[in-house]
Design a protein around this nucleic acid. Structure first.
Ligand code: FES
Ligand code: FES
Lengths: 160, 160
DNA sequence: ATATAGTTGACTGATTTACTGGGTTAAGGA
DNA sequence: TCCTTAACCCAGTAAATCAGTCAACTATAT
């Protein structure tokens, strides 16, 4: 399997949206500040998330992103698949052909592992994560940490 | 997490040993031929497997490798850990510090995934894999495919 | 002695990651 | 109608990782 920062950032960003986009859209700049992810990198990820119809976009001033459906209907494996293309532990990518067009000795094992991982991640929704105490704590810590930065940005904008 | 050909090859090679090293040691050359893995690459992997005491070695002519304990006592996660160092899905490697020395939003989630994967792979032993029908079939197919190559090598050796 | 077979470390080409920049397009407000 | 916001898109790139090679060495059986 491959699980890189791409998939991790995507889930982190979606969870950030889940926490903050209930009423108004959230800009990538806000997410970038709260989650310390590069803005340009987020743009790439959201381009894919939008194409996968995980988020909806509002352009222009006051715009940003919102989740496309209720948090209970968005699961982690969908998010990862949207940006990372596959959640597959096999060498062959499911083609059963990694040893001269035939099955290798361990194909079976990796298929089992892939299924295991897939079921686990598919069983967890953003709603589940929102409920977890440790995650709520991190989220509120992040808000406090960067509150002044985001406010500052807003004030500067207003003043100009 | 990272699961690369390194870990996959190691499991494949150990399974090959499980099938063939019951009586006499198996050379890396034989494994390389049956599993179509580069000999030099196998050497690297077995150097680690030996240090992790997963295999025992017999040097010199007629030598090779054997499993260090019964197949039922060798599980997949041990093999992968021996060559791949970690079976961890977190960014922080369990340090809980990937966002300015503090926990990121999704640390909890990746820890859960890591545990899930670990338990799954730890629950499977080489003995379990040996019993699986599809794996037995692949193993016997491989033996037939390369039998003549290995025999040929033996004959050439005898003749010299 | 000599061939077998494992041991070790350095090294390399190819690919992927994570990220940056620059310019474009859509929408709201003065 | 400008100007600004903020998403969109594409090309490029430094660094890391992977998969594998090479070469020189040691131990052992015949
Ligand atoms: S992993 Fe599918 S054939 Fe090897
Ligand atoms: S994954 Fe552990 S702190 Fe981010």
């Amino acid at each position: 399997m491959r699980l890189t920062t791409k998939g991790r950032y995507a889930v982190t960003a979606m969870l950030d949206l889940a926490f903050h986009s209930e009423r108004t859209p959230v800009t990538l700049m806000d997410i970038a500040t709260r989650q310390t992810i590069s803005l340009s990198y987020l743009e790439q990820l959201f381009s894919r998330l939008r194409r996968a119809e995980m988020v909806v976009v509002v352009r222009g001033p006051g715009g940003g992103y919102q989740l496309s459906r209720p948090v209970a209907e968005i699961n982690i494996s969908d998010i990862i698949k949207a940006v990372d293309e596959q959640i597959d532990s096999t060498q062959c990518g499911g083609e059963t052909n990694c040893q001269n067009q035939k099955a290798c000795l361990t194909h079976d094992l990796w298929m089992g592992l892939s299924n295991q991982i897939h079921h686990y991640l598919a069983s967890i929704s953003l709603a589940d994560l929102l409920e977890r105490k440790p995650i709520q704590e991190v989220a509120s810590r992040q808000e406090q940490d960067v509150e002044h930065l985001i406010e500052l940005r807003r004030e500067v904008i207003v003043r100009l």
